[in-house]
């Protein structure tokens, strides 16, 4: 693999992280990050949908007139999300029970449409595949970071295990305000690193 190939994947991990830098997909990063388990489930599902939608959209970009490209992309994305939803419900009922509600929200996750518009519609299927994998992993990294902070502070747990025996956690951190606080501080920390 050439250097640029590796770069296409790894750019999304950190320096162009979709959540922390591009500020894409903030809705799920606030909603599903109540536990690391949920964050991982959402992350994996998003990687799958994002990679496939990037490839398909890169392949069909030639035959879709630009005036109706958005509805076409949405059809592709919605179909993929429904497939993921059904497969999870059939083969991983536990995960489906925990994050099933959020899976349906991937349809409106702006990461998917954002990458389709900004990248897949202008690049080859191979590069779009790499971009989808990288951006998906970057999304998952951000989700897991936020979820780890919130689960430890808000529920005193990590992966469902107690972290500090006897300590009563700050319940507000697993609620919506905790999500905004955590995301805000992570964005701040990332900006501080980029500036120096």
């Amino acid at each position: 693999m050439s250097v640029s190939t590796v770069k296409e994947v790894t750019k999304g991990f950190w320096e162009k992280n979709p959540v922390l830098v591009l500020a894409l997909g903030l809705c799920p990063s606030l909603a599903v990050t109540t536990s690391v388990r949920n964050a991982l489930g959402m992350g994996v599902s998003t990687i799958f949908v994002l990679t496939l939608s990037n490839v398909i959209i890169a392949l069909i970009k030639g035959i879709v007139p630009s005036q109706i490209r958005i509805p076409c992309y949405i059809i592709v994305i919605a179909t993929l999300v429904t497939i993921v939803d059904l497969v999870l419900a059939a083969y991983f009922p536990d995960i489906s029970k925990a994050i099933g509600l959020f899976i349906k929200l991937i349809v409106v996750n702006c990461i998917i449409l954002g990458r389709a518009e900004a990248f897949a519609a202008k690049n080859t299927a191979w590069r779009s595949l790499l971009d989808g994998i990288g951006m998906g992993i970057g999304f998952m990294i951000a989700l897991v970071l936020i979820a780890a902070v919130r689960e430890v502070l808000g529920a005193n747990k990590l992966f469902g295990f107690t972290v500090f025996p006897g300590w009563r956690p700050i319940a507000v951190m697993v609620l919506a305000p905790g999500a905004f606080l955590t995301l805000g501080f992570l964005l701040g920390a990332k900006n501080l690193r980029m500036r120096t």
Binding site: T34, S35, G154, A155, K157, L158, F159, G160, F161, T162, V163, P165, A171, V174, L175
Partner: peptide, 19 residues
């Protein structure tokens, strides 16, 4: 999560360090 969803919460049987 963290409030109403606690009706389904099971206290962790082991700590992270034990795990």
């Amino acid at each position: 999560p963290g409030l109403g969803a606690e009706v389904e919460a099971v206290p962790a049987s082991r700590t992270l360090w034990q795990a």
